[in-house]
């Protein structure tokens, strides 16, 4: 018997979609993920085209201090008589930038540490994970306040402070993933072929965690945006820029609450909440899709259906 496989057996390959497409499909199947993606996309678009939407400047005085919302100014005016909607849109830019940039910083740092620790193992792993443990124990917000105070307020500092203090969960997640990938048969095969560490790491392991990295980035955005708001509210934001946190801080300081000017404080708060919500929804769904083993199985109390029809009906 010759060992030839007939053409017939190849003619009908199982049509399994490729990974990115499968990822997209599984995100699309989750309503929460669609909602999260919609929220995030709306804010990103707002940040990009925002300045075209309102005719006013961010320093332009257009009316009375804390003027009520009106047709011309749907969100009213702030403590300097500047249009709140204009400020809110300008703040979207800075807040999102800080959120995404800090998240990227943290994922780069955390991802590198996690992959290195997981792949190298041994004392490298031990040392890096000890470092990670210390970082987890350190209370983040007080440390951020200290560092931000020492470095002085600026957007770049804000990004670095947040990014460099938030990488721990990413590092642990990635390490665990790489540890299991390293034991995979395909990686063992690569080693047996004679592949070097570099090739194994960057061709066989890292590409497998891209999905997880993406998910973690999105998920971290929510935390970064929240910290940005918190730091700004504590007066550590860049005074030269407008962000949601700065808007809340200024409104708070300039007696918006006692003046009853809710429109100066509620909209930026809602924006922060929405972005946090959106990125958690999308990030969690991406994480489930990228790492199905970590997902909780959805146990359904429903049971199978019974049909009357016979099998050969079709």
């Amino acid at each position: 018997m010759s060992a030839t496989t007939t053409l017939a057996s190849v003619a009908a390959p199982t049509s399994q979609p490729t990974r990115p497409r499968r990822l997209l499909a599984s995100v699309r199947r989750r309503p929460a993920a669609v909602a999260g993606a919609t929220i995030l996309a709306t804010f990103v678009i707002l940040a990009l085209v925002g300045p075209l939407l309102t005719p006013y400047g961010v320093h332009q005085r257009v009316g009375e201090v804390y003027a009520h919302p009106s047709a011309a100014h749907p969100l009213g005016l702030d403590d300097a008589g500047v249009d709140m909607l204009t400020l809110l849109i300008a703040g979207t830019r800075v807040s999102l930038f800080v959120g995404f940039a800090a998240s990227v910083v943290s994922v780069i740092v955390g991802g590198s540490i996690g992959v290195l620790a997981g792949y190298a193992g041994g004392w490298v792993d031990g040392a890096l994970m000890r470092l990670t443990d210390y970082m987890i124990v350190v209370p983040a917000l007080p440390l951020m306040i200290v560092v931000a105070t020492v470095w002085g307020p600026s957007v770049v500092h804000m990004v670095l402070v947040i990014g460099l203090l938030m990488w721990t969960s990413t590092a642990r997640l990635l390490r665990a993933q790489v540890l299991s990938l390293r034991e995979r048969a395909s990686v063992r095969r690569a080693r047996a072929i004679g592949c070097g560490h570099w090739r194994i790491a960057f061709r066989h392991i890292v590409p497998e965690v891209y999905g997880l990295l993406g998910a973690t980035t999105v998920l971290t955005v929510s935390v970064a945006i929240f910290y940005e708001a918190a730091l700004s509210f504590l007066g550590l934001g860049d005074p030269g820029t407008v962000s949601w946190g700065r808007l809340i801080e200024m409104a708070f300081e300039r007696t918006a609450i006692s003046s009853g000017a809710w429109w100066a404080i509620v909209p930026p708060g809602v924006c922060v909440a929405l972005v946090v919500l959106g990125s958690s929804l999308l990030g969690n769904a991406l994480q489930d899709a990228a790492n199905p083993r970590a997902a909780i199985a959805h146990v359904s109390p429903r049971t199978f259906r019974v049909r009357a029809e016979r099998g050969d009906r079709r």
């Binding site: 359904s300 429903r302 049971t303 199978f304 259906r305 019974v306 049909r307 016979r310 099998g311």
Partner: peptide, 11 residues
């Protein structure tokens, strides 16, 4: 009778 909810049975 231990099939998942995605199953349907006849017979």
């Amino acid at each position: 009778g231990l099939l998942p909810a995605t199953a349907s049975v006849s017979g």
